[in-house]
């Protein structure tokens, strides 16, 4: 974990840390809220994978596009989405980023280039390809990033996107977050070969990175984003990580048999991307303990404020339920 450090200022390093911690603390809050029965719908948490969203989105501007998955809170926050409005959305409130219409699986903010979380596995891959086409036509160096899981890599749409992306040299970055599971199936039981190699036949550059090392992710994304901005076409990055929480909160209530060992989960917790990065910053004298504590406090306040905003927000007006289906109803 040192390759990229020289390219980043201390402020930038601390910003990466802050963003990862924000995602973590927001989701820990959501986990508690879910356990307390405060969330109306299902939530899929990103705990343990924060380095990927943060390492990639650090290279992106508001005008760049991202598409995400059912596990989309981290991407939303990493791209600059508003924590309070995300919280209000997941609480099902009127001040939610989607007015309570979408919920956890659909947090989106187009003004920030966040095309959004997605309930359809693989759905975001095609959307990002289309956004990349639009970006290419705009001709101003914008890029589109698709975040998706190892499970989604088995949808045919990945091959279709690689083909079109390569053929048209689209400014498309495909980030496969291999977190070891496709719901309750370990990746190897449903995935042949290596995902990173799926790009090779199309001539698309591809690399595999340690997804729990924010600087390694940052470095890989740096190259990919630069290539895309310069008209060099798509890149596939397979980031190896691990989902330390359940596929979905509350899964123990309906999954009767364990699908992984506690020891495996523990082993990965030891490689937690936030803990690792904190240790790196400390050992390299890049951040003093009180600086990290100050970040922790500030993040805690942001989360508390998000909860306050969400709780104070009214429920949506039932009379609005059929609203905005069409831009022009007639």
């Amino acid at each position: 974990m040192s390759v990229a450090a020289s390219n980043l200022s201390r402020e930038e390093l601390l910003a990466l840390y802050q963003r990862m911690l924000l995602i973590r603390r927001m989701e820990e809050q959501l986990a508690r809220d879910c356990a307390a029965g405060k969330l109306p719908g299902p939530v899929h948490l990103y705990v343990g994978q924060e380095a990927i969203a943060v390492g990639v989105c650090h290279h992106l501007e508001d005008r760049d596009w991202i598409t995400s998955t059912h596990r989309g809170h981290g991407h939303f926050l990493a791209k600059g989405g508003d924590p309070a409005r995300m919280m209000a959305e997941i609480y099902g409130r009127a001040d939610g980023i989607c007015g309570g219409f979408g919920g956890s699986m659909h947090v989106a903010d187009f003004s920030k280039g966040i095309i959004g979380a997605n309930g359809i596995v693989g759905g975001g891959i095609a959307l990002a390809t289309g956004a990349a086409l639009a970006a290419q036509l705009d001709g101003d160096g914008k890029v589109a990033v698709a975040f998706f899981g190892d499970g989604a890599a088995n949808q045919g749409v990945l091959m279709e996107a690689l083909n079109v992306g390569a053929l048209w040299k689209l400014p498309l970055i495909l980030i496969c977050e291999n977190n070891g599971f496709s719901e309750f199936s370990p990746t190897a039981t449903v995935t042949a070969g290596r995902i990173v190699e799926r790009a090779r036949p199309f001539g698309v550059p591809a690399l595999k990175v340690d997804g729990n090392d924010v600087l390694a992710v940052w470095q890989a994304a740096n190259q990919a984003v630069r290539r895309a901005r310069e008209g060099g076409g798509p890149t596939l990055i397979e980031a190896i990580t691990y989902r330390t929480r359940g596929h979905v909160e509350y899964e123990v209530t309906f999954i009767t048999e364990p699908y992984r060992s506690e020891a495996e989960v523990e082993a990965w917790r030891a490689k937690d991307p936030i803990g690792r990065f904190a240790a790196y910053l400390a050992t390299h004298g890049l951040a003093a303990a009180d600086e990290l504590e100050a970040i922790e406090r500030a993040v805690g306040e942001t989360v508390a404020e998000a909860v306050r905003v969400a709780e104070a927000s009214p429920e949506p007006d039932p009379a609005s339920a059929t609203g905005h289906m069409f831009a022009n109803p007639r």
């Binding site: 109306p40 939610g96 339920a321 059929t322």
Partner: peptide, 16 residues
Amino acid sequence: VPDCCIPYAPVLERAV
């Protein structure tokens, strides 16, 4: 159901 999507918030979902 009215010709709209199924919304997330319980109050909205109950309405449709």
